[in-house]
Design a protein around this nucleic acid. Sequence first.
DNA 1: CAATTTGTTCCGCATAGGGGAACTACTGTC
DNA 2: GACAGTAGTTCCCCTATGCGGAACAAATTG
Lengths: 266, 266
Amino acid sequence: MSKIKGGPQILSSVQNALRLLKSFSTFEPTKRVGELAESLGLAKSTVSRLLSTLASEGFVIKDEKTNAYRLGLSVLTLGGIITNDLEIHKEAAPVLYKLVNDTGETAHLAILDGLDTIYIHKEECNHPVRILTHLGRRNPSYCTSSGKVLLAFSEPKIVGKVIDGGLVKHMHNTITDPGQLQGELEIIREQGFAVSTEELTEGTRSVAAPIRDYTGQVVSAITVVGPIQRMTDHKINRIAKKVMEAGNEASERLGYDERYFKRLRS
Amino acid sequence: MSKIKGGPQILSSVQNALRLLKSFSTFEPTKRVGELAESLGLAKSTVSRLLSTLASEGFVIKDEKTNAYRLGLSVLTLGGIITNDLEIHKEAAPVLYKLVNDTGETAHLAILDGLDTIYIHKEECNHPVRILTHLGRRNPSYCTSSGKVLLAFSEPKIVGKVIDGGLVKHMHNTITDPGQLQGELEIIREQGFAVSTEELTEGTRSVAAPIRDYTGQVVSAITVVGPIQRMTDHKINRIAKKVMEAGNEASERLGYDERYFKRLRS
DNA sequence: CAATTTGTTCCGCATAGGGGAACTACTGTC
DNA sequence: GACAGTAGTTCCCCTATGCGGAACAAATTG
């Protein structure tokens, strides 16, 4: 039991196992027993047992030579299932593909999960110079173009939480001032797209636009990322237009009727 | 403890949680407490607790309206990490992309995990009529082209295990006779590619070729899948040639030196 | 060949977690 | 709209499980 007042019942060993899995990352794809014990605050013996169990079901793989553990293929299988399961995919995938062809840059579909954005789909460009991202990648919402789009069209409460959570300076262009963020979101609502230039990652620029479902709600964002050298100022408007068109097409495929909602608003 | 003689220590609650996760599939992406309790042989209360714990860490999502559970985004994140981590990817991805363009059909990278094949990479074609597959998908090795390629170039012991495990008839063309399978593997070794026509899934045909690493060992298979209407007999040789070329190129990128090994063999 | 470091198994105790029952929330039916 | 029926969560109790620590084993280093 971890919560105090009779909340949902949590199994601590399972929780430990899940946290252990989550402690893997793109930057640290392998981990050892000792490290994990330390970072999770558990005894080595406990971690060892957790890993054996995880390994027996294929969630981690042990390198018998080095004793290092990495994520296992079960995880990949589950990832494939959820990908298939997400509705938006089926509709937005072809749009995304077209967008990559039109712009020559990698495109993503992103949604808000808590206060972060998550890439739920990725269509890679074939430029040799690429931006390193991956499916399922979690980024802070306030310093990515997709995140800003999603914030701009979500409840003010969410934006408040993001601000309360702290606007950490990841790069020289990161927005750290709450007022400035609010202003930016207002602009995004007006112009219908967001741009982010070196706010999270050095040398990258991204453009994003909203995707709406049949209720008119913004459910995800479509975004294009590339190195700033290719995403130049005078190309950015053309790209933004393409991204918005793609967003609109995806929205229509999800049953969004723009004219109906425009009439409502007026 | 699940194993009898002092094997690795297994945490039953964790094992239950992992098996629960694995019981989701493309065909049943949502599950309810009752179903899971039955299929796992656990009490409803137990399953309920497991799900609460999994949900609290984002491994499953509960639909509050219907009480159905589906896989959560944590799973997607982990899937992205492992994808990034697999070496073969970086080298084979562009080759795969080219193959899709050349053949117009969806291509995969597959490896052997235990006695099954797993798709570790997928590059989709843009035909409106597509074969439903997904990343991480697990298939029996003896009735897919990629599986047969991997078996053909793996230790005889593995093939023995597959045969001992039983050759289940999934489709009218499934190979169920051990001798016939051995013969087929021999042919694959000679010609350098495998074809599978409606051996696992109705209406589909696939072609696969091996990928070797710098040690000369076959580490994965590259494969193209499509509906039989498009994968006609008179096109199949052209496709097989393309797949083999792609396999060779990927092998070279992994440091395989064909000439060196040819000299060794002679 | 010690010495050190790292991972696994053993051990014993406290407690977490399993099953079943009770409770609660929905569904659908007449 | 009341009532039966179903499905999920919480409670309770008891046992087995899973935790930490220590001992053990294996690998690495000087």
